[in-house]
Lab assay of single mutants.
Amino acid sequence: EHKIILYENPNFTGKKMEIIDDDVPSFHAHGYQEKVSSVRVQSGTWVGYQYPGYRGLQYLLEKGDYKDSSDFGAPHPQVQSVRR
């Protein structure tokens, strides 16, 4: 199983989107239009992308907690697509 939770604010606060065993080419299409400032990967390895359609900067997200976007190497809290 692959499970990831994306949070609007640092330290796992604010609006969140939970994804289980699915690739998401556009967070906006899924109704999530917030920034991504923290991430909790509960299982599996994911790649987050700066822009929709798996474009832009890529961020490797392995199991663990990323309490701020800088923890996974993002210069800005901008992640708009993700895949396993």
Rank of each mutant, 00 (worst) to 15 (best):
H2K: 11
H2M: 08
H2C: 02
K3P: 02
K3R: 12
I4A: 01
L6M: 12
L6H: 00
L6F: 04
Y7F: 10
Y7T: 02
Y7C: 01
E8M: 06
N9K: 11
N9S: 09
N9D: 06
P10C: 05
P10Y: 04
P10W: 03
P10K: 11
P10E: 07
F12N: 08
F12Y: 09
T13H: 05
K16G: 11
K16Q: 14
K16W: 04
M17L: 11
E18P: 06
E18H: 04
E18C: 15
E18I: 15
I20W: 02
D21S: 02
D21T: 02
D21V: 00
D21C: 00
D21M: 01
D23Y: 03
D23A: 06
D23M: 02
V24D: 04
V24L: 12
V24C: 15
V24Y: 11
V24R: 10
P25C: 11
S26Y: 14
F27L: 13
F27E: 05
H28S: 13
H28T: 13
H28W: 06
H28E: 14
A29T: 10
A29Q: 12
A29D: 12
H30E: 13
H30W: 11
H30P: 10
G31E: 09
G31T: 05
G31V: 00
G31R: 06
Y32H: 12
Y32W: 10
Y32G: 13
Y32C: 11
Q33I: 15
Q33A: 14
Q33C: 13
Q33K: 12
E34Y: 07
E34N: 07
V36C: 14
V36Q: 04
S37R: 14
S37F: 05
S38V: 06
S38F: 03
S38A: 11
S38Y: 00
S38L: 02
V39F: 15
V39E: 04
V39P: 08
V39Y: 05
R40D: 04
R40Q: 13
R40W: 05
R40G: 03
V41Y: 00
V41M: 00
V41T: 01
V41I: 01
V41L: 01
Q42Y: 13
S43N: 01
S43K: 07
S43A: 14
S43Y: 05
S43W: 04
G44F: 03
G44Q: 03
G44L: 01
T45P: 02
T45N: 07
T45S: 10
T45D: 09
T45H: 09
W46K: 01
W46A: 01
W46V: 08
V47D: 04
V47R: 02
V47N: 01
G48D: 11
Y49M: 15
Y49A: 06
Y49W: 14
Y49R: 00
Y49D: 15
Q50C: 01
P52V: 04
P52G: 02
Y54Q: 06
Y54G: 03
R55E: 05
R55G: 07
R55A: 06
L57K: 14
L57T: 15
L57V: 11
L57N: 11
L57M: 13
Q58M: 09
Q58I: 04
Y59E: 09
L60A: 11
L60E: 15
L60S: 09
L60F: 07
L61S: 02
L61P: 01
E62N: 07
E62T: 09
K63Y: 09
K63R: 08
K63A: 09
K63M: 02
K63P: 15
G64R: 04
G64W: 01
G64T: 00
D65F: 02
D65I: 03
D65W: 08
Y66S: 08
Y66G: 06
D68V: 15
D68R: 12
D68T: 11
S69H: 15
S69V: 13
S70G: 10
S70Q: 13
D71V: 10
D71E: 11
D71I: 08
D71S: 14
D71P: 08
D71C: 09
D71F: 11
H76P: 10
P77M: 06
P77K: 10
P77D: 11
P77G: 12
P77L: 10
Q78P: 09
Q78L: 13
V79I: 14
V79G: 05
V79P: 07
V79R: 02
R84W: 05
R84Q: 06
